[in-house]
Design a protein around this nucleic acid. Structure first.
Lengths: 202, 202
DNA sequence: TACTTTTGCTAACGCTGTTAGGGAAGGTAA
DNA sequence: TTACCTTCCCTAACAGCGTTAGCAAAAGTA
């Protein structure tokens, strides 16, 4: 049955060909100008061929979204594992998030609906609990170390604040990037997060 | 010359007719499905007529953007004026921002590029200094009251944090609205902002 | 009444996502 | 080798989008 194997291999190759070609277009020209026809043109096939491998354009975007979330979560998890101290873990996660966002602008914009593409990213978002587990545990620990009581309710509030500081800072820098130096922006993140962590301990 | 007056009046009437019709479409179906043809259809004129009143579709979006920013700034300024205490001013501004965002989802999404529309909102954003002045002054006061020194550099950092908390919380709730009650979300904002203000005073 | 401006239309161009239908090629069985 | 069937991949179209050229009718002016 080596002939069906070859076929499967070719199908898989075409799929990744479509994806890498699409990715190249996005990196060169942005999400806005990614079109089925452009992909077809670049891979030197006619348009309907794309639809043999993806149900529609959204399916392609969702595929990228999935990849983006996977990579982000991997980075965050690695950052968390880089230190045993819970406060340092939170700082490390924040830094990793920041770095990911600007090293992978295209991913970030797609994942949070900031670029052009109109597509319900919910469909490729990982379980909310994954993000929760990453941040919630060290946060509870920090709070508990400070006042020795059960801190879950408080941590639930702080959890949202943590992500909003991160996402908010990134968003603002992405929308209006020009006015400050790279240096200053990193300072803002550091200040905000260390301020946040300090506040947890009170 | 009452005849040219009537003409000016009619031109103005048509312009607002286009805008209110477009706004209705947006409220009913979202930014995604606002199209020149749909507007033309609704006002019962042919498509090119729209272009006698607006240079292109972006010009219509920019008009809405301008309106949105004006309304937002008015709300924030009113909130600031509602109390003389600088710490309370910050809290009031944050609350007003929050309320505006969810009472005017369409505006907010357009202004910060969260909906579909692809259009450079920079072109209708007010001077950055307007936002700065609203928040920076009370912030410096709060910091100064606490430690009596010059606080401008510090306030510059905190300024970004303030907006990122706000924008971040709003964004996250808009992307993933369903999982918590209205009540809890307001709690998160309160906690984050009071935590932030408390941190200023240290 | 004759001329000019304004108004608003039809029809098109080039782009988008998506799909129907057919021809050619590849693989299978007699 | 011939007959058949599946798979592949194309052309051509549909319906929608923003935008514009060009023309006919209406409105205003002399």
């Amino acid at each position: 049955m080596s002939i069906v194997e070859r076929r499967l291999r070719e199908k898989e190759a075409m799929r990744t060909n479509i994806l890498t070609t699409a990715w190249q277009i996005v990196k060169d020209e942005g999400w806005q100008s990614l079109s089925i026809r452009k992909i077809a043109d670049a891979i030197q096939y006619s348009v309907p061929v794309i639809y043999d491998y993806f149900e529609n354009k959204d399916a392609i975007l969702l595929e990228f979204g999935k990849q983006g979330f996977e990579q982000l979560i991997a980075k965050l998890a690695a950052a968390k594992d880089s230190t045993p101290d819970p406060a340092e873990q939170l700082k490390a996660i924040a830094d990793a998030y920041w770095i990911f966002a600007f090293k992978n602008k295209e991913f970030y914009q797609l994942m949070w609906g900031m670029g052009a593409p109109t597509c319900e990213m919910d469909k490729c978002m990982p379980e909310r609990s994954i993000f929760r587990d990453l941040v919630m545990a060290p946060m509870i620990e920090v709070i508990n170390k400070a006042n020795g009581e059960d801190a879950e309710t408080n941590a639930c509030l702080k959890y949202h604040t943590f992500w909003s500081i991160l996402h908010g800072l990134v968003s603002i820098k992405m929308v209006a990037p020009a006015d400050d130096t790279e240096q200053l922006n990193k300072l803002v993140l550091d200040d905000a997060i260390t301020g946040f962590i300090k506040n947890l301990k009170i």
